[in-house]
């Protein structure tokens, strides 16, 4: 974990209001694990005041990339960065996906911007002998970002590409068909999607990790601002920033 000012290498548009920002940060690029995140401050001064958390999308040599869409003042500032501008980053943060555990096929399930951690995860998995199946869901075809992924199946809300329906329904069909060899699910996306995914995984008896997102202030466990309710454990809440963002889906009490 470190704080550094990283120069912008490039900013490219990858879809409607969707961007990939590449930053030169060798110390982070060399160490960051799949589903870890960076807490980023794009401006000096107090507007916006706090950092914003972003999953690492991909590493490219000494560069580290994040995926974002414009949702507010902070991401608008990010969308206007130019090569050479300095961005203040704190990272890498959070616990990664457990890609070393016992499974044969990694089933990567991303909803909307929840695709963000999967290119980096795919890169890590492709160095092992494991299979990868990727399922992406989005509102419509232009919002699907399939770069740097493998064996991609798509679901869209409006039916403009692939399966007409939710990505969880698509994954459930695939898993129920029994064609996927010893699967483990890795999910990232909006909470309703993760809740449905967790239910599917429990129903089918398949291990499932989910990467949760939350508003955060510090990203390192001191502000206590990003709790998620757990089932059964000693504590009612865990912090998404440093006890997650990855959790066993069975242990999360979705709202």
């Amino acid at each position: 974990m470190m704080i550094l000012r990283a120069p912008v290498v490039s900013l490219r548009s990858v879809g409607p209001d969707m961007y990939v920002l590449s930053l030169h940060a060798p110390q982070i690029a060399a160490n960051v694990l799949p589903a870890q995140f960076l807490n980023i401050k794009a401006t000096d001064g107090s507007e916006p005041l706090l950092r914003r958390p972003f999953s690492v999308y991909r590493t490219q040599g000494e560069n580290v990339e994040i995926l974002f869409n414009i949702v507010g003042a902070g991401t608008r500032i990010l969308s206007r960065l130019r090569p050479g501008d300095l961005v203040d980053i704190l990272g890498p943060l959070g616990c990664p996906f457990s890609l070393e555990s016992d499974f044969r096929t990694a089933v990567l399930v991303g909803g909307g911007l929840g695709v963000a951690p999967f290119p980096h995860a795919t890169n890590a998995l492709s160095r092992s002998s494991r299979q990868i199946r990727t399922f992406l869901g989005a509102r419509s075809s232009p919002h699907i970002l399939r770069d740097h992924l493998q064996n991609v199946s798509v679901a869209t809300d409006d039916g403009s590409e692939g399966y007409h329906g939710t990505v969880v329904a698509l994954v459930r069909n695939a898993l129920e068909s029994g064609s996927i060899d010893r699967p483990k699910i890795f999910g990232c996306g909006p909470e309703p999607m993760l809740r449905a995914l967790a239910r599917a995984a429990i129903d089918l008896g398949i291990p499932c990790e989910v990467s949760l997102e939350s508003v955060m202030a510090c990203g390192i466990g001191i502000c206590q601002g990003c709790p998620v309710e757990r089932t059964g454990g000693e504590k009612k809440y865990s912090l998404i920033c440093n006890e997650g963002t990855v959790f066993d889906a069975r242990t999360i009490k979705f709202s």
Partner: peptide, 20 residues
């Protein structure tokens, strides 16, 4: 103490609200 349920923090103009 477990603390309060989420959402516990919100950013506001040059500041933040918390309810930890």
């Amino acid at each position: 103490r477990d603390g309060n349920p989420p959402a516990r923090i919100v950013e506001t103009a040059s500041g933040m609200l918390n309810s930890i």
